[in-house]
Every structure is written in C-alpha cells, then in structure tokens.
Simulated scan of single mutants.
Amino acid sequence: MKRPTYTLSSIIKKVFRSGERSLPREEICSRLEASGLITGFGMDGSALLAKVLRMDQSPVRVGRSEAIIELTYQPHQLFDLAYRFVRDTHTPKTLEQIAAELRRQTQFGWNQIMRMLQLERDPRFVQYQGDARWFLAEWTLANDQVYAFCRANGITQVAARSVHHFLEQEAGVAVDAMFLPALDDRFRLDGETLYIIARDGDEEEKHAGLEAAAAVETAEEAEPEADPAEAGQTAAGTIDAGLSGASRPQSTDVQQGREEQRERSETHHHHEVHEQLHFEEELSMNTVQNQSVLEEVQQLLRQALGRLEARSAEMAQEVVAHFQQSNMQAIEVLMKEKHKNEQIALGIQQVLAATEQQ
C-alpha cells in the first residue's frame, strides 16, 4: 500500500503547534502516538524522535535537559520570504525554485541562499517521502477525500486537464488542500487521463457494480423485439400502396412533375452560386484579418525591442553608479540581466525577420 507519507523530520515538525518552541520529550512521544503519523514505520514515538535527533539537519535538539526538546529554527528574512512565496503561489516548490525567487527579490547570492535556507529546520515547511518539493505544514491532504468521492460516485477516470476543476467544483476539495496522486497507488496518471484504482476493502462496491451491470443486461434482453411477420406485412402494404398509385399516371401529372424538377434544378444552381460567392467573401475577409493580426504582432514585437533597448541604456548608467559605490554584487546582477535581455532581443529579431519574410 502506497500513500503520501511525511518524512521523519516533517512528522516531528507537525507535532509542534503554532507558537511552540519547545516541548517535553514525553509530550512529543504522546502526540506522535496519538497523531497516527508514525503508523507503518515500525517504531514507536521515542525511537522516531531519537532517530531525528541524530540527523545532520534536524529540526529539533535536546534543550537544557534531556527531558526537553526544542526547535533548532532561527528566524530570518529569507525563511519568511520563502514562506510567503510558497503560500502566495499555493504550489509546492523545490529548494532551487525557492532560491531562484529569493535571488530575484534580494541581494543575496545563490550560494548564500542555498547555505542559509535550511528548510529542514523551519517548522512551517514539510516534505513527503519521494517528493523533493517543499509543502506548507498548514496545508491538508485531499487524497482520501478524492478517493472516497470517486468510489461513492462510480468515477473511474478523470481527464488530466480538468482535474483542477473536478477537485474544486465536484469533489469539494478545500483551497488549502493538496492532491498528490503520484504518491498514492489508488491513482494512476496515464497520459492525459487520471485513473482511480479500486483497492482492498472495496469488494462490496465491486459486487454492487457487477449487480448493476447484470441488471442493465437483463433489461436489454427483456426489450420486445418486432414480429417478423408483422414487419413483413407492413412493408408489403407500403409497397402495394406505392404500386397502386403509380399504376394510374396522367399526362398532366407528368408535365407538372417535369416543371417542378426543372425549378428545383434552377434553385439548386442559384444556391450553389450563392454559397461560392459567400465562401470567396469569407476567404477575403479572413485574409484581411490575418494580415491585421500579423501587423499587430509585428508592432508589439518592435515595442518590446524598444523597451529592451531602453532598459539596456538604464543599466549602463546603473553600472556606473554601483561602480562608484564599489557595489560589485549589484553590478553582477545587472550584468546577468543584460545578458538575458540581449538573448531575448536576439530571439525577437529572429521572429520579426521570419514574419517579414512571410
């Protein structure tokens, strides 16, 4: 059985409530046992705590006595910025993704951020086994809720592109809940489809499904079939009626039929001519519209080039100012931005050249 499971250090962090900095060892073990988070690890709360205390980046340490366990987390602006970034995006992030965002928001270098940002110590962040991303401890897990809803409503698959809508509008998953099908063997993502897999304990539901299917088959077999003799008589009556009507043709009726056929032919011809003219008109309008869109795109690309060039001029002045202040770190940031802008400008120029050739 595979289910989303917290890492050992994350389990210990989940024990601490908001505002708590230290706890008695016995209280931690008691909360571990009561939480059910250690089920399946093959160890009790005391053994799990001892194992976490031996970790290099442990979130806890022994306090002023062996009976007291305290958090190792020390507040810093980087941790707060990382927390706000993950919270505002409401998406789990890898350490590299968080560091890249902090690199953009602050003047800290990459190596500084990676060295200082030890999220293993921050009780606001947790991880699941087999997933390198960082989640917020305040988020809940929706896997059980989604599975129960699918089984209760006979849902066996959901289109991957509509999973988000399905979770919010149909399954009623809370905004702060995470759905992690990749860590749960009750779900399987195959291409563009998410499959819900029935596991042990669902035998009654399977039996009910088989009974329902059998009932449908019985109903289909019980549908009355048409009597071949009656069908033959009906068809024969129809054919006889047609022949009796055709056996008494009149000359006036023949002439009238020919005139009606000629009128229908002329009407059909006029309709084809009208459709051809309408098609040519639409083709002309589409051509004009495509040209208008292309010109608008070219204009936007030229505006983007102009803004990049203006930014390059601004950066040249900023480099001089930072050089006078001996702020080499800021100069390094500007040089990276300049290189990126040059690459973007080159790409835009290539796109413009391609559109002009067309």
Rank of each mutant, 00 (worst) to 15 (best):
R3D: 03
R3K: 12
P4F: 09
P24C: 05
C29F: 01
A34M: 05
S35M: 04
I38P: 05
T39I: 12
F41T: 03
F41I: 11
S46T: 08
A47V: 12
L48Y: 03
V52G: 06
S58F: 06
S65F: 07
I69M: 04
T72I: 10
Q74H: 05
Q77N: 10
L78I: 09
A82F: 02
A82P: 13
R87V: 02
E101F: 03
E101R: 10
E101Y: 01
R103F: 07
Q105R: 14
Q107L: 13
L119D: 00
D122P: 03
Y128C: 01
R133H: 09
R133V: 09
W134P: 01
E138Q: 14
W139H: 00
Y147W: 12
A152G: 04
A152I: 04
R161D: 02
L167Q: 05
A177L: 04
D185Y: 01
E192P: 04
I196V: 15
I197W: 03
A198E: 08
A235R: 14
T238E: 13
I239R: 14
V254Y: 01
Q255F: 07
E260D: 08
T267Y: 12
H268T: 15
V273K: 10
E295D: 11
Q299L: 12
R307K: 15
A321W: 06
M328A: 12
L334A: 06
K338N: 12
K338Y: 10
N341W: 06
G347M: 12
I348P: 00
